[in-house]
Each structure stands twice: as C-alpha cells, then as structure tokens.
C-alpha cells in the first residue's frame, strides 16, 4: 500500500509503482474526471497539477510523485464553489462533449496562476490541449474573462 496526496488528502492505493498516475487516479482512487485520451502526453485530457504545475498524468509513474501535491479537476471547487476559471467556463458555455475540458480547465488554472493576465500568445503556448469538438474560440474567451474576474 502506498500513499499519494491528492486534492489535500492522503490517499492509499495498491497499484504497481510504475503505473501512470492517470490510471491510479481513475481506477484506484475513483477520480474519473481526469481523462485518458492518448497515453503519450499529446492530447492533454489527463492534465493535473503537481505542486501547481500542469502535468500530463499519463506519463507520470505514480512512484515518482512522492509527497508532491496532486490537484485534479475534482479538487478545484472549494466546498462546491467553482473556482474562477470553472465559473468563467460556465459563463462562456465552453464545453461541447466535455471530454477534454477537465484537462483544459486544469491547464488554464495553471496558466492563470503563473500569468494572471495572459496574452493570446501566452494562451497559445500554454493551451496545447486537443479539443475535437472545437471549443478553442470559447476556451480563449473564458481564459480572458477569468483573468479579469
């Protein structure tokens, strides 16, 4: 049994140490908001924050996480109140199918923590997540709105 710190809680799991964090979150801890899209760190659907850094969890062996703090999409809303990025996402009615949106929101949360007033170029550089429905226009709008909130 090993322990990782997810969303402020120490959680036990019994996965093989080399198991990607993505699958520990999804299958051992029941945190299915973090999505599998490609498994090779291309699409960003599995983005979580590790010590505040947006990270593609499909390429992170769980034993490399150690005592670092993992934040998943489920950990953003405090006591049921959406964080300002989530609120901006709702206000801009961003998601279509929604499958990529956990990763998008996590990447945007990390971006705004690092750069509270990102330019379009900053957004382009940080938001490399893939959305196939095509929410890019609304994602950009929501990030700008959140930066002003």
């Amino acid at each position: 049994m090993a322990v990782i710190n997810v969303n402020g809680k120490a959680l036990n799991h019994n996965a093989d140490p080399r198991t990607p964090l993505l699958w520990v979150l999804r299958e051992q801890l029941g945190l299915t908001g973090t999505k599998y899209g490609c498994g090779i760190a291309q699409c960003g659907a599995c983005t979580v924050m590790i010590d505040g850094v947006a990270t593609r969890s499909c390429q992170v062996p769980v034993n490399s996480v150690g005592a670092k703090k993992v934040t998943t999409i489920e950990g953003l809303a405090a006591n049921g109140t959406l964080n300002k990025i989530q609120a901006a996402w709702v206000a801009a009615d961003v998601p279509q199918c929604g499958y990529c949106q956990s990763g998008m929101v996590m990447a945007a949360t990390a971006l705004l923590a690092a750069k509270p007033n990102p330019t379009d170029a900053d957004i382009d550089a940080a938001m490399t997540n893939i959305c196939r429905c095509g929410t890019y226009v609304q994602v950009r709008e929501a990030i700008h709105a959140a930066s002003k909130a």
């Binding site: 999804r26 029941g30 945190l31 299915t32 908001g33 973090t34 999505k35 599998y36 998943t72 999409i73 489920e74 953003l76 809303a77 959406l82 989530q86 996402w89 709702v90 009615d93 961003v94 998601p95 929604g98 499958y99 949106q101 956990s102 929101v105």
Partner: peptide, 21 residues
C-alpha cells in the same frame, strides 16, 4: 440559452462510458 449539461463538465463529475463502474 445556455446548455443544460455544462457544470458537470467543468468539475469532473460528468461520467462518460469510459468512466462507468
């Protein structure tokens, strides 16, 4: 009007087939 299925998609609560258990 806003979509009826948005909030769960920004909180990770929305379940897709792959999330079913």
């Amino acid at each position: 009007l806003k979509r009826l299925d948005t909030v769960d998609k920004v909180t990770g609560k929305q379940l897709y087939g792959i999330d079913f258990t």
